[in-house]
Design a protein around this nucleic acid. Structure first.
Lengths: 206, 206
DNA sequence: GTCTATATTGTGATAGAC
DNA sequence: GTCTATCACAATATAGAC
């Protein structure tokens, strides 16, 4: 006999797969039920409605990604090592959750209630403090290790450089990385190094 | 009396707004009809089905963005000026079409037939040549103006750095750029300069 | 808890008058 | 070309037996 705990996890896993792949409107309860090996009625028994199930999934994924990133930033490495570490670990994170950024961004770009509720909750809980990254960056600027500029510009450049491959992988591999012998793992290892070098030396004094 | 040409444009504009905002499944024919000031029946009179209308819109937007970008790359400026020019103009392009990247990426990430058909068509027509950017970059490498690395790494870093703000604007402005006095235009002008400086000096010899 | 069967609603699409 | 009315079906949700 399967425990409730396990069954709920099976449902959640199935729902996650379908929602992440197709979004709220593209996903169908029937498909989720099929994938979980149950029927639609049981889906409604566990989670009263499609919207509630979706919100559950969105909250779970958004919280996971957010806490993972905050975890990565919670370090006392000096700036250069911190930057290298963050980029490397963040890309590892994305390799293991490569469809999450698109899923989250898609939902947020709609600007619906579900996303904004969850975001507000998570930000209240996890982010009610000044980000340590800003401090790390400003500290490095004062020491003269990197040039002075708006720290947000640096952060957005790092995140964008890491995320873009995963959000646009299909089109990037269609128009840019078209070689048959393309090795994704190898490329992403090189990507870690390239992002670090470009950005670190790009903000170093010259 | 309104000309057919005009009416079709009104419908297309309405459909574009709704599809871009909500995607294929989130968009409803009723909403498009309302926004265009007509009824559903007329929508089907002009464009036989929702899918055909959607494909029309997707093809239009994808073609526009692609040709605009190719246009930007069609220059004989020396590398440094080319990079500055491209980043500046590309961000201008995104300011005027800030929802298009998310729309295109969302569709492509689904990997449906509509997107892949259009992409194949456009690539066949517009991109059946080696990209001039690659040549510009490799030329600069050989001259020793920039360090040697995979040109794709540079391209993806530039594109990601430019695109990320627009794809994630909602969340970026919620968690990062939270000041009430935030000036979007000013920030984006600074962004052009920041991206150029970080990347250009990041790939310069040291 | 789990199922089958069914109700209910939403939505794409069409018929037919004007 | 444009409309109202309606169809047909897909999808969410519930009722009720077991």
């Amino acid at each position: 006999m399967v425990k409730v705990q396990d069954k709920e996890e099976i449902i959640l896993k199935a729902a996650m797969d379908v929602f992440v792949e197709k979004g709220l409107y593209g996903a169908k309860m029937q498909e989720i039920a099929d994938k979980a090996g149950i029927n639609k009625a049981l889906l409604h028994y566990y989670y009263r409605s499609k919207n509630k199930l979706y919100e559950h999934i969105f909250r779970f994924i958004f919280t996971k990604i957010t806490t993972d990133i905050i975890e990565l930033m919670n370090t006392d490495l000096p700036f250069k090592e911190f930057l290298r570490y963050f980029i490397s670990k963040y890309i590892d994170l994305l390799i293991n959750n490569h469809k999450f950024p698109m899923f989250i961004m898609r939902e947020i770009s709609h600007g619906g209630k579900i996303a904004s509720n969850v975001i507000n909750d998570v930000i209240m809980n996890e982010m009610n403090c000044r980000y340590p990254v800003i401090d790390i960056i400003e500290d490095a600027m004062e020491k003269g290790e990197i040039i002075k500029m708006d720290p947000n510009q640096i952060i957005i450049t790092v995140l964008g450089s890491c995320l873009f491959y995963f959000m646009g992988e299909n089109i990037i591999r269609t128009v840019l990385l078209t070689e048959k012998s393309f090795d994704r793992n190898e490329f992403l290892e090189q990507r870690k190094d390239a992002i670090f070098k470009i950005i670190y030396y790009g903000i170093s004094p010259r």
